[in-house]
Design a protein around this nucleic acid. Structure first.
Lengths: 349, 349
DNA sequence: TTGTAGGCGTTATCAT
DNA sequence: ATGATAACGCCTACAA
């Protein structure tokens, strides 16, 4: 019972071998005779040595085995979105073979520039995945680049040289809109994700700039089909927000279809319609986006486009793996799949 | 443009000061004259030095600034539960002042014993928070203890010496049951969380052992008031599961009240009741557990007990902080608060 | 306030 | 198959 933890040197001494041999027993980098191996293992057991200290190993190797995941928002809000959840799962899968764990980093930079401690600048990460998009992302990229840390961006405004995982948001949303128009709808309202960092709830005026990439791009896709459709922005992607927005939309008029930018919003919209005595899809068609399982939406099955959320995460993980391998990772653009449900139908005459 | 990254020694040389001075400029541990400081900073800038290498720093300090969070389940499933989400938020808050980040660790140990790489045994963590409860948790505890890593357990079966964050599940559930009985109900069904690792969906037979702690304890609380109430186990805590279970329950009989072990299950139960033409609370009273915001449940407001999920996470974080500080952390037991909603009423005569 | 020196625990290289 | 040795980059007594 020494006060100090045993080190590999202690183990080597106890086993009567050299440190390098002991080290090799644990890393398996070089063949070792069975006899010596077991001697070392026994020595380790007696000394209560549980393996190399990861800190020392990572200094020596120049690798920590940790991948940072940087969010632009509070963790609680971020994980409420099933798309994010699935992405994380894919990401975790893809980095697992690397022997890497995921370090959650939220962007807490105080406005003053005095960053709080656990930040991008000091975390022992081998690579980083930036998720979402905000003004600060450029700064974050700069910091990471200066540190020489490989970065992959998921659906965000990366610079050149930075591999990004993207989605065909424009095309997918246009496809949905075309489906709706194909059914005969002309009186359509667009229900969008937050339009900017302020997250203003309400009708989007034409002079208002939409700074959130996803929102702007999906809106563009829908407007290609319905150039004049009014758009209403929610504060976040949730059923309750969809419900609130839905009430406001129905209070202002009676469109025959609502194209929502997320499944959760669409679910809320449906509920608002029911509340107003409208039947879906007979009186109102509603479409979603994402293709996530909306808990509690039964018996409806949303007409939506399915985005490969898990695959997006996995692709990001693979891109990270590639960059850590010295290869350079290509950007990748995923494609959504249209899925017809029972929430759209021709408008009533 | 040297091929090697600049180190603090390079910066010191460039600035014409000693390494220790340069080091101090970055750590701020000791006062430095303004003149020297700026010389060092300038030197760092010219050399593209962005601060001490975290790996080296952590070896030297014996700290990595990382707290591991160990889940018993797939990440995607885990984060679907709002309670977990909030806990994570509290946890993140509480460890932030430590300058620590959160490393996601899922328990991936292959059954064969050949653990996959990114594991508890090799992660450079200063402390760990174990969440939930499973058989493997004991092993995990053993590993971490052997490594000398402080552990805090949230709602799980920890050994002695391990601080745990707990909830008064028994008392809280009993309080709910008493409320229900106070309204006059006698024909009650209990709708529970999964009863064991197999997650069997269906009526819980009396000879079946309930291995999941939370489920067993809450059930015990309810049974103290309704000793003979039948119990039906869901596969997971979700609205859809509540709906499915609710259908099964109503197909088997017409209780006047259902006591659910989570708000999500309760929400599904309500939906099942509506579907069956029952009004809540007139024809059927329903109670929940957790006090989370159930997206899309409007206009209902669940009668439930509110658990301080965020506080639980925060407490765990503070316990971690304490143990890293050398103090020892006390276990803590949180109390739920009863909250009357509009989903319970006296039974109809 | 600034400098000197030693070591944190490992692993990679090279020789044996 | 095994061993000696030199980094990895930093921090912190301690001394000046």
């Amino acid at each position: 019972m020494s006060s100090r933890r045993a080190t590999i040197a202690d183990v080597a001494r106890e086993a009567g071998v050299s440190v390098s041999t002991a080290s090799v027993v644990f890393s398996g980098k070089t063949p070792v005779s069975d006899a010596t191996r077991s001697r070392v293992l026994v020595a380790a057991a007696t000394l209560g040595y549980t393996g190399p200290d990861p800190r020392a190993a990572s200094l020596r190797r120049g690798r920590s085995g940790i991948v940072g995941v940087v969010f632009q928002d509070h963790l609680s809000r971020v994980f409420l979105d099933p798309v994010v959840t699935h992405m994380m799962d894919g990401l975790a899968d893809a980095v697992a073979p690397l022997g890497a764990g995921l370090l959650l980093l939220r962007d807490d930079e105080t406005p003053e520039g005095a960053s709080s401690d656990p930040s991008l600048t000091t975390a022992p990460i081998d690579a980083a995945v930036l998720i979402g998009c905000s003004g600060r992302m450029r700064d974050q990229l700069a910091v990471l680049e200066a540190r020489g840390i490989p970065v992959v961006v998921i659906e965000g405004d990366a610079g050149p040289h930075v591999p990004r995982i993207d989605l065909d948001n424009h095309e997918a949303q246009r496809a949905v809109a075309q489906h709706v128009r194909g059914l005969g709808h002309t009186d359509v309202v667009l229900l969008t994700l937050p339009a900017d960092a302020v997250r203003t709830f309400g009708w989007i005026r034409e002079d208002r700039e939409i700074t959130t990439d996803v929102t702007r791009v999906r809106l563009g896709g829908a407007r290609e089909v319905f150039p004049d459709a009014p758009a209403f922005a929610a504060e976040s992607s949730s059923i309750d927000q969809g419900l609130a927005a839905g009430r406001a939309i129905l209070a202002a008029g009676r469109p025959t279809a609502v194209i929502a930018q997320s499944d959760l919003l669409a679910a809320g919209m449906i509920r608002a319609a029911e509340e107003a005595g409208l039947r879906v899809p007979e009186d109102l068609s509603v479409t979603g986006f994402d293709g996530v399982v909306v808990d509690g939406l039964e018996p409806y099955e949303l007409t939506t486009v399915v985005q490969p959320a898990t695959d997006k995460g996995r692709a990001a993980g693979e891109a990270v793996a590639a960059r850590l391998d010295g290869r350079d990772a290509a950007s990748f653009r995923f494609t959504c799949t249209f899925r017809a449900g029972n929430t759209t139908a021709p408008p009533r005459l």
